[in-house]
């Protein structure tokens, strides 16, 4: 059962407060909520809530490795998925030219897509960046394309593939707060303090993993 402190409305406000007022340009914030899977006695981090802000200049990050043909094909795939999701949420049958699909015809950026596919992911305690942060009870801060690409965590490599340059996972009371950016953002105590304040958790500042 979700505690009142972590109800979804409250979570959304906290995630929004975390990045809307920040000096740095974060593209998104996600709260991975921990729960125990009874049959396996394992802690699993699943989607709690997320706030998507977007990048400052989306044109800057376009199609890092793909050709024009691949880009078009990938966009078609993303738009198709978005159309189906729109249909699922609104209950209106998806079809090209439908007024409700206007937003789908706009390019689906890499960060938007990364945020969307994040909703399908979960992490067993100790696995992936969020799981590792939870397991070690210490924040993980990865800055730079090379470091993300060289990470042992699939999520970090996936983030790099979608143009992110910074990803941070900070453990909190019953989950992990993750932030991502297409900019290079270096470790700051400001963010840690903000998470500590908003998500009510004592972080050992000396134990941040680079």
């Amino acid at each position: 059962e979700t505690m009142p402190f972590f109800n979804q409305e409250s979570l959304q406000q906290r995630l929004q407060a975390l990045i809307d007022g920040a000096r740095e340009s974060w593209a998104y914030a996600i709260f991975w909520q921990s729960s125990v899977v009874d049959f396996a006695s394992q802690t699993v981090l699943g989607w709690g809530d997320g706030y998507y802000k977007g990048e400052e200049d989306k044109n800057k990050r376009r199609g890092s490795s793909s050709s024009a043909a691949n880009f078009v094909a990938e966009q078609e795939h993303r738009k198709k998925v978005l159309r189906e999701l729109n249909s699922l949420i609104s209950g209106v049958q998806a079809s090209a030219g439908n007024g409700t699909d206007d937003a789908v015809d706009e390019e689906v950026t890499d960060t938007e897509w990364f945020f969307l596919i994040s909703m399908t992911q979960s992490f067993v305690n100790g696995n992936g960046l969020p799981g590792l942060a939870m397991y070690s009870s210490s924040p993980i801060w990865v800055t730079g394309t090379e470091k993300l690409a060289a990470s042992q965590c699939e999520r970090a490599r996936q983030a790099q593939g979608f143009g992110l340059q910074t990803i941070v996972c900070i453990p909190s009371a019953n989950g992990v707060v993750e932030l991502g950016s297409t900019e290079l953002i270096f470790q700051s105590s400001d963010l840690m303090n903000k998470v500590k304040y908003l998500f009510n958790f004592n972080i050992d500042m000396g134990s941040v993993t680079g």
Partner: peptide, 30 residues
């Protein structure tokens, strides 16, 4: 239809916000 509630809420919010953004910039794309 059987999306967990947290994901459904997040997805709804994300899609609505995207729709607002696209609608607000559309007149300038002519």
């Amino acid at each position: 239809a059987d999306l967990p509630i947290a994901r459904r809420n997040s997805l709804t919010r994300f899609l609505e916000k995207r729709k607002d953004r696209v609608t607000s910039i559309a007149p300038y794309q002519i």
